[in-house]
Amino acid sequence: MFQKIVVPVDLAHEAVLQKTLTVAAEMARLYQAAICFVGVASASPGPVARTPEDYAKKLRAFAEAQAATHGVTTEAHAIQSHDPAVEMNKALERAVTELGADLVVMQSHVPNVADYIWAGHGAHVAAHSRASVFLVRD
């Protein structure tokens, strides 16, 4: 049913992603789909990596580790953004299309009053993507 699952990840908050990663891996096994981990980062040094090259390397290592843990096929896709705090939604939306994904599994907070002003990343992707979207509430 699904061939390619995109899983957006924030490597700075890996610990809270566990539920999402498990769901994604189980879906991948069920449908023999490949997982593509997508990360959006600025070119400026950040907590995860100090250069864009380093960031791509860390995302790759993360994908490899996930492949080993869950026995699924994984890819890594690093996106650079001038202003990730704002451009995240559009960047993810574009990546889902460009990568030809048919399912997105992503972490999403329980909506609150702030979502009336700033829609969460998950809500945005679900509203704009042609792919199916599975939001995992934390």
Binding site: P52, A78, I79, H82
Partner: peptide, 14 residues
């Protein structure tokens, strides 16, 4: 296992 990096809009290629 494959990997790739792309740029968002007119971002910077790695």
């Amino acid at each position: 296992m494959t990997d790739q990096t792309t740029e968002a809009a007119d971002g910077i290629p790695s």
